Simulated scan of single mutants.
Amino acid sequence: MFFYSKTMAASSEPAGVLQILWQALQLPTKTATLFFPLLVLALLSSSCVFYANFSSISPVLMDLVSKLHILLKGPCPGPELSHVLLEMKKELKQVAGSESIITLISFFASLFLLVATFYTFAMAYSGTSLTPKGLLSRVARRWYQTLVTRLYVLLLSLGFGLLSSLVIGTVMLVCDDFNYLASSGVALCIVAASIYIYLWTRWSMSLVITVVEETWGIGALSWSVELFVANKKKGWILTFILMLLKIVIYGVPGLLMMAGPTPPLPPPPPVVDQLRIWFLAAAAGALLDMYAMAVYTVFYFECRKSHGLDEMLKVEEGFMYTSLPAAVVKVEATFP
């Protein structure tokens, strides 16, 4: 049976940046019974990843740094040099193997959490009740499509990072004047960061589209381009605020770890305190990631409203369906 859900923002007035941030902050309270388990799973996942990295990789990395320091101090005798290099090779393989397993498990855990969280927030925003069974059905139905869209986003991010690094590196190599080199390098970094924020907003919205609607991959990326028209400034500011918060969350512990005994800097905290600080940073980062998903969910609906697509969304058995422009459907059919 089909029915129509009542959207949270009934007014046709477009929401500003602060309104979107506030509405996103309210979404967890509108679906507390589903949000709390997702929050626990997110915190548990980030804690496990942090502990795995700290316990299995950090000691090996510290040993690698110490061996590298020995090599940089001066030439070693032949047998000793061969032994150190062999040990470093084994440790590098160990780090690569452990990190690959941790990254793979973390990637798929975050993928399922992403689908569940986006859909929970979308249902909460539209005022539609959602049961755990309906949520699990949606996760099982859309995880593959979300995986494909996320891989596209990953490849695009890597491509943009590589291209921007090549451009900045080339400019720095051809410049002879130090003052011009410094100013041009800073300017290019700012431009690259601004473009990345712009692109990341569209890519994040494509993930929301994949979870909520029936298009995915190239179709979701194309649809995000259409919705992003006339909403560029608002989306850029939202992503800038979220990234600034993430820099603060991970930057403050980093500054504490870099502190030294030389005045006026305080001495670095003990190892146990460092572990607690980074654990809290990882938990805060997980909370921020969930809040960012709420922000992009609200922003997605606001983009729909700005294009006159704020009509009621059709829902059947907990699944949300929306009609897509013919151009987008055609793109999706071309790129399965």
Score class of each variant (00 low, 15 high):
A182Y: 10
G235Q: 09
A109D: 13
M320L: 12
P132L: 11
V191G: 10
L25D: 11
I105K: 10
N53V: 13
P268R: 08
M243R: 06
L44S: 15
L135W: 12
Q19F: 08
V148C: 01
F160D: 06
W278H: 03
C189H: 14
S58V: 14
L81N: 04
L166K: 10
A281T: 01
G74V: 03
P75F: 04
D176F: 15
V115D: 07
L221T: 01
V40L: 14
T334P: 01
A122C: 09
E311C: 05
W200S: 11
Y144T: 14
Y198H: 00
T170P: 02
V49K: 04
S100R: 08
P261V: 05
S66Q: 03
G78P: 00
G185Y: 02
F319H: 07
I197H: 04
A109K: 05
T131P: 14
F35M: 14
P77S: 12
D310C: 05
Y180T: 15
F178E: 05
K30F: 05
V186Q: 13
L245S: 02
I197V: 15
L64V: 04
A193M: 12
A96Y: 03
S204C: 13
A116L: 03
K234F: 01
V148P: 00
A326D: 09
G169D: 08
I20H: 04
K89P: 00
T146W: 01
S194W: 11
T262W: 04
P270V: 07
I249K: 00
D289P: 00
V65W: 03
M258P: 00
